[in-house]
Design a protein around this nucleic acid. Sequence first.
DNA 1: TCTCAAAATGTGTACGTTAACATTTTTATT
DNA 2: AATAAAAATGTTAACGTACACATTTTGAGA
Lengths: 346, 346
Amino acid sequence: MKKRYTIKDIADAAGVSIGTVDRVLHNRGKVSQKALLNVNTALKEFNYKPNPIARTLKNNTVYSIQVFLPDPSKDSFWLPGQQGIKEVIDEYSAFDIEITVHYYDPSEPTSFLDNGFDLLAKHIDAFLFVPLFEKESDLLLDELKKRNILTATFNSFHDGTVDLYVGLNLFMSGRVAAKLLFDALNAPSKIVIVHIDEESENAVHLREKERGFRQFFDEIQGYEVITLTLGVNGFEQKFASFIESNSEVDAIFVCTSKVYRIVKALRGIGKSKVLVGYDLLEENVKALRAGDIKFLIHQSPKLQASLGLKALVDNFLLGKSFSKENLLPIQIINSENVDSYRYSFV
Amino acid sequence: MKKRYTIKDIADAAGVSIGTVDRVLHNRGKVSQKALLNVNTALKEFNYKPNPIARTLKNNTVYSIQVFLPDPSKDSFWLPGQQGIKEVIDEYSAFDIEITVHYYDPSEPTSFLDNGFDLLAKHIDAFLFVPLFEKESDLLLDELKKRNILTATFNSFHDGTVDLYVGLNLFMSGRVAAKLLFDALNAPSKIVIVHIDEESENAVHLREKERGFRQFFDEIQGYEVITLTLGVNGFEQKFASFIESNSEVDAIFVCTSKVYRIVKALRGIGKSKVLVGYDLLEENVKALRAGDIKFLIHQSPKLQASLGLKALVDNFLLGKSFSKENLLPIQIINSENVDSYRYSFV
DNA sequence: TCTCAAAATGTGTACGTTAACATTTTTATT
DNA sequence: AATAAAAATGTTAACGTACACATTTTGAGA
C-alpha cells in the first residue's frame, strides 16, 4: 500500500528542488558536482523509477501508427491478421494513439511499393507491415530508417534492420511438418512438396519452410523428397497427371495455406494421400475435420498482427520495451484441437 | 495527429464548465435538465471517452494483488508459472501496483486453506490463485467474494463464481490426447490411463481429462481403455507387474506431468509403448527427444499465469476489461516443435 | 420586490513529470 | 570589493481527470 517514490521524494532526500532532479534524470547539465552526487545517491537508495503514467500524460502527443497488410479480399489468409489489428485498435480506442490500416495486393509488388511510399507522406511514428516482397521491402525499409520511423514486421521474416519481427521460425516449421509426415508414414516413401502458383523466388518464407522440410528427411534413410511447382493455369490436370504417373507417392506437403486445393484435386481423381499444410482457413479446417488433412501448422496470423501492434502501442504509451524478435511457437493442429484455436485469442 | 476530445472540449461545446460535465459523467446529480441534455449531446457528438492515463494518474492508489501458487519446489510443474509471474512483476515494476507471491504445498489442502486465509489479513484488491483443491477453494472464494476482492484463477478450472479463469478446456485436451494415440496406433488396441499418486477425487482437472479421453474412444470401435491407479509406494514394481500381465497394451496416457516416470519404469523392464502425457518438464522433454514419448500436451503454465496477472493489472492500470474465461489453445508438442515453445513467451 | 435556502454551476487543486522561465549563487575580472 | 557573466537552482504551469469547495442562479414565500 505504500506509494512509489516520486521526484519530490528524491528532491527532498537530496536537499535540492525537483527541477534539479529532473535535470539529473535527463542529464541536461546545469547541475553542480555536489548536487549530482546527492541526487544520484538518493535515486539509487530509493531505486527510483519514473511513473510512466505521469510521463505519458505530460507527453501529450498522439502517436500515429500505420499498418500495411496484404488485402484480405485478395487472399483470405490475411483475414485473421486484419481482425487482430481491429481488436487492438478497439482496445486502445480511448488512448492517444492513431492507428490506420492500409492494404496492398499480395500478388502485385508494385502495389506494395506504390501504396507503401504513399503512406510516408504524412508524419508517422511507427510502421507495421508484412514484408511479402523481398526487394520492395528493402526499399521501403531504407526510407523508413532514413525518417527514423519505428519499424515492425510480421509473418514473413525479413532481416535484422527491422526494430521488431513477430513470427515463426519458418525453417523449423518445415522440420515440424516433416516430422509429422514421418510419424504418419509407416515406411520409407516418396514425398512431394507442392507449390501452387507462388513466386517462390521472391518469397523467402517458402524457401525456408522447404529447406527445413528437406533437412529433416536428409538426415534419415530411404525417403525421397521431390518438389512439384504448378502454376494456376491448368493446375488440376497437371497435378492429376503427376499423381497418376507417380503412384508411389504417399504424402504431400504444401508450404502455404493452399492445401485445400490439393484435397479437392485428390478427391477429383479418387485418390488419398497423407497431407500436411499450413493455416486454419475455413476450407482447410473442413478438410482436417473430414480426415483429408492429417495436420495443419498454425501460423497464428491474428496473434502475430496483434502482438506486433501491441508492442508498438505499449512502447509509446507505457514505455514498455520489446525484444527485436518475437518467435511464436510452431503450433500443430489436428481435428481435435482445432476448435481450441479458433476461439482463443492466441 | 489530432488530439482526442477532453472534458474541456465537451464543456465548451455544451456551454458549461468542466465541473458540470464531470457530474454528468459520474451521474452525481446537481445538474439541470438543460445542462444534462447539452452535455449528453456533446458527449455523443464527440464520442467522448475518458483518458485512462489521466484517470489513473488522478486515482493515485497503489493496487495490491496477491498471487497464491503451489510451491514450485514441491512440484516443478509450477516453475514456469512462477517465472511468468516474476516477469509480469518486473514488467510493471514502475507502476503503482504491488504484487506479492505466496505458496502452498500442492499435496496439503490444509496448507492451501491456512495460508490462503492468512493472506486476507491485509487489504487487497485482487487475488490470483490455482484452485487445486475443490472444497478448500470454495471456502476461500466465499470469503473473497464477501470482501469484494477481484478473483482470478488459472490452470484448474473451478466454477463460474470467479471473475476470471485462464486455462485449457481440460475435457478437450483429453480428446486431443486420444486422437494423437489413435493416429499413432495402426489397429484397435488396449490403452491404459495411468494415475500416479494423485488424489483424483479432489482433482477435477484430472477427471475432466480422463472423461474427454474416454469419450473419444467410446465413439469408435475396438479400443479398450482401462484405468490404472498407482500410489507412490512401490509404484515401479506394481507398474511392471501390470505390464507383464497385460502385454497386449500398446499405449499409455498419463493425465499429468508425470509421464517421465512411466518412461523410466518402461526402460527398467525393457519395454516400449506409445506414450502421451502433459507438460514440458525437463525430463519429459528429454524423453520426447529420445523418442520415448510420442506427444506432449502443453498447458502453457507460464502463459496462463502471466495472462491472468496481466489481465488484473491492466484492468486496474488502464481500465481494460477482460472476459470471464480465457481458454487457451490445446498445444500439441513433438520433438521438432518443442524448442519453439521453450523459447517463446507463449 | 425582497429574502433566503436550495439548486446549479464554476473554480481550484492535486496526481507525477517535464521544461520553460525566474531567481539565486558562484566565479572571473577589474 | 564591486561588477558582470556564468552557473546553478528553484518555481511554475501544463497534461486530463476528479472532487471538494466556492460562487452564482433560481424559485418559493413573505
